[in-house]
Design a binder for these strands. Structure first.
Lengths: 235, 235
DNA sequence: TGTACATCAGTGAACGCGCGTTCACTGATGTAC
DNA sequence: TGTACATCAGTGAACGCGCGTTCACTGATGTAC
């Protein structure tokens, strides 16, 4: 099943890829709302009805792009972390490496970022099986916290502590036992802070507010690492 | 200029309002992407070309809605704060009151929230004069911090301190002199955390992750208040 | 190895839809003398 | 107060566009005997 046998099967796999690639280009150029099957078909020099041999509807094509994009950010996050670990980086360094990896991806794929984290496409409901792909990025952040907890270096956050039941059990189960409910809460906050900060930058809310987006983002990444309890230089 | 004289002027003002109201309903029902001049005209029982007597284009109508929506959140935030102040609430209580006010507005006006903070409408560029309206909500948060600084109760955040130049001077100028660069940075982080948290809830990213959105939000609001340096009960 | 049939990819035309915007028009409202 | 002209609101038809999706078709590829 991994290696298609017949020429037909090979051609089908290739064309499916060509279609999603062309669709991704359209998406990058004009955004998800403007993505049309007809435009994609035109770009490939085929007739619009031919695309229906490969995708049953526009929504199915969108789903493919959505999945690809989630996996792309996830991979970027995992790769950034792996590289940092190879350099035997500190937890804070791993954390900021992932943050910068995600932001770099977002800046390079603005419309894909918007597809994932912006306004949901009207009339389109993402199927449930996208959640696995969607989870890769936040799970990378979680793994850094888990590793730190394992080595006993995780700082406990002061102040109010989150109630235990706030977070779903399936999420709780991804955390090391030493990770408190409040730390888990902090990881969630950091996750939405990461996406929220990038979103504000891309969607223009920081125009005239933040003068240096690079420096601001770096600072926020660092702050969140400390808030979560990762040990690191005080500066 | 405040009171239109002629019947024509009165009718014009009324119809302009009726059009934006109808458009707001459409927006609420179907989202900004699906908002069309023709649909709005239909809802009002007028012919589509008649709308052009009031708005020069679809974009102009969108701008009106955008401005209204920014002012609506801003008002909600200011109102929530004013009520809290009347009850002589603590800074933390004022802060969380504003947060809940903004979230309540967002839950009641999901598509308007998406219009403001979600993916920018393709091909549409918001005019510069929306920034005043857009600033009302974050400035309400800022005012709580300023009041606290004025009374000398603002806690200084530990850890790394933000560079002074990260934030635009126009923003810096809205802060009390005692507010440090790092606190200002924390306010910005809280602002994007507020919107990011609501966005994650509305756009479904917390599905299967956060079990109780109310409680989670309340906790995040509280946490951010403390992170910013507002004095409050440790729990 | 060769033939007969089934499967599938791609074509081209068509259906039906809704959109933004323009334009020449009618008729009512407002204004100047 | 009354008349003559200018302004403006709303009409209805039209232009030109692009979209998603369906359908009957041709011709090539694959399969079974």
């Amino acid at each position: 099943m991994n290696a298609p046998k017949t020429a037909r099967q090979r051609a089908r796999a290739e064309l499916t890829k060509e279609i999603t690639d062309a669709a991704r280009l359209r998406l990058a150029a004009e955004g998800a709302a403007a993505l049309s099957l007809r435009a994609v078909a035109r770009d490939l020099g085929m007739v619009s009805s031919a695309v229906y041999r490969y995708f049953a509807s526009r929504d199915e094509l969108l789903t493919a792009l959505l999945l690809d994009a989630y996996n792309a950010v996830g991979e970027q996050a995992e790769h950034a972390d792996a590289t940092a670990r190879n350099d035997s980086a500190s937890p804070v360094q791993r954390w900021t490496a992932v943050w910068h990896g995600v932001r770099a991806w977002a800046l390079a794929h603005q419309h894909e970022f918007a597809l994932l984290y912006g306004t949901p496409v009207p009339g389109y409901a993402a199927p449930a099986d996208t959640t696995v792909a969607a989870a890769r990025m936040p799970l990378t952040l979680m793994s850094i916290v888990n590793d730190t907890a394992k080595s006993g270096e995780l700082a406990q956050s002061g102040g109010p502590s989150a109630a235990a039941g706030l977070v779903a059990d399936t999420v709780r189960d991804t955390a090391h036992p030493d990770v408190t409910a409040e730390t888990l809460n902090r990881v969630l906050m950091a996750w939405s802070q990461l996406i929220g900060t990038i979103g504000f930058e891309l969607f223009g809310h920081f125009n005239g507010v933040v003068t240096d987006n690079d420096a601001y983002f770096t600072h926020v990444a660092h702050r969140c690492a400390l808030d979560v309890g990762l040990p690191g230089s005080a500066d």
